[in-house]
């Protein structure tokens, strides 16, 4: 970098030769954000890639969980008419359906929550609006997941 001359204008005299030649190549321009020993290998995490992949993996699992749930609740055995406290007590007596509902709760809420994060990023342009909408979204998502989990684990068929 001995020949670097970053202050010279790149335009030579109109009639003369260029400032640059084989022996005097164009100046090196320093990268605006130079890597140092302390810079990590990658300066951006792979969060967005993980989120993208999660949307697809959870989507495949949710097809089975949610459509199965709708079949049970709305179609089989009398449809909605049969639903009531006794029906729920019967279903959550089985660990299989507890795990089913738990997986559906977590996957659907995280999938939908991450989907809404994308929607907010797309439409809310003012930084403040984004901050508040996302704060609201994350609060509602965490609250719903915790409440639903608590309800499954503490369900008491003999509450009365």
């Amino acid at each position: 970098m001995s020949t670097t001359d970053t202050t010279a204008s790149g335009i030579g005299p109109v009639e003369g030769d260029s400032l640059y030649s084989v022996d005097n190549p164009a100046p090196v321009i320093e990268p605006p954000r130079k890597r140092t020993k302390k810079t990590p290998k990658s300066t951006r995490g792979n969060f967005e890639l993980a989120a993208w992949l999660f949307m697809r993996l959870s989507g495949v699992v949710l097809v089975v969980l949610v459509i199965g749930h709708l079949l049970i609740q709305l179609v089989l055995d009398g449809g909605v008419s049969k639903i009531g406290f006794a029906f729920v007590a019967g279903r959550w007596a089985s660990p299989f359906w507890q795990v089913w509902d738990l997986a559906m709760l977590w996957l659907a809420m995280l999938h939908g929550g991450n989907g809404l994060r994308t929607v907010i990023n797309d439409y809310a342009e003012r930084p403040n609006t984004r901050l508040w909408l996302k704060g609201l979204l994350y609060t509602a998502t965490v609250f719903t997941i915790l409440l639903g989990t608590l309800v499954i684990f503490t369900f008491d068929p003999n509450i009365r």
């Binding site: 729920v88 989907g115 509450i159």
Partner: peptide, 26 residues
């Protein structure tokens, strides 16, 4: 997607009524 998310939010709230009383849920 957005509609389903809002439904699910309300749905978990209504299901939570099983922890209040059978009458409230029904």
């Amino acid at each position: 997607g957005v509609l389903i998310f809002f439904f699910l939010f309300v749905h978990v709230l209504d299901t939570a009524l099983v922890r209040v009383s059978p009458e409230a849920y029904d």
